[in-house]
């Protein structure tokens, strides 16, 4: 409930600053995970179709805990890095995929977390405001 309120406040604050910046999202999906798993990942594409750069400040959801991360591979080692304030230049896209940028989900297990289900995320941009994204829950087989 606390998370929902926080999300709502963020959405309301951001709505008041909505600009004409254009953010488009594609193919957002969340990976099914074993019942005992504490984490899973979400992927997709965020496109900035506007004429100026925009910054992704945060991401939240009213049903799961989520953070924006990147897996970095250096010298054969995978390391997860927490990100904030990711800039997407005008006309460019940010691809969230395995072994790269991704949404990391916590506390996601619930009756609704099943294959074919949906999770809603709110991407909070500096200029575009809040962009609502609906991600399908899929198995690793269909990715």
């Amino acid at each position: 409930m606390k998370l929902f309120k926080l999300c709502l406040v963020l959405v309301l604050i951001s709505l008041s600053f909505i600009s004409n910046a254009e953010i488009v999202t594609e193919n957002f999906r969340v990976m099914m995970a074993p019942k005992i798993a504490k984490n899973t990942a979400g992927y997709g594409v965020i496109k900035n179709t506007g004429s100026e750069a925009d910054t992704l400040n945060s991401v939240c959801s009213d049903t799961v805990d989520v953070m924006f991360h990147k897996t970095e591979i250096r010298s054969g080692m995978a390391k997860m890095v927490h990100l904030s304030d990711v800039v997407i230049k005008a006309g460019q896209e940010l691809v969230l995929e395995a072994m790269s940028y991704h949404l990391m989900l916590f506390d996601f297990h619930s009756a609704e977390f099943k294959e074919g289900g949906k999770i809603t995320f709110f991407l909070n941009f500096k200029k575009a405001g809040v962009v609502k994204v609906e991600a399908s829950i899929i198995t690793t087989d269909s990715s």
Binding site: N39, T40, H69, M99, T140
Partner: peptide
């Protein structure tokens, strides 16, 4: 490790295929 959200499930999915 099992608390890995991204690369380990991805690797296991790869090995499954």
């Amino acid at each position: 490790y099992t608390n890995c959200a991204d690369i380990c499930p991805f690797t296991l999915g790869y090995l499954k295929k």
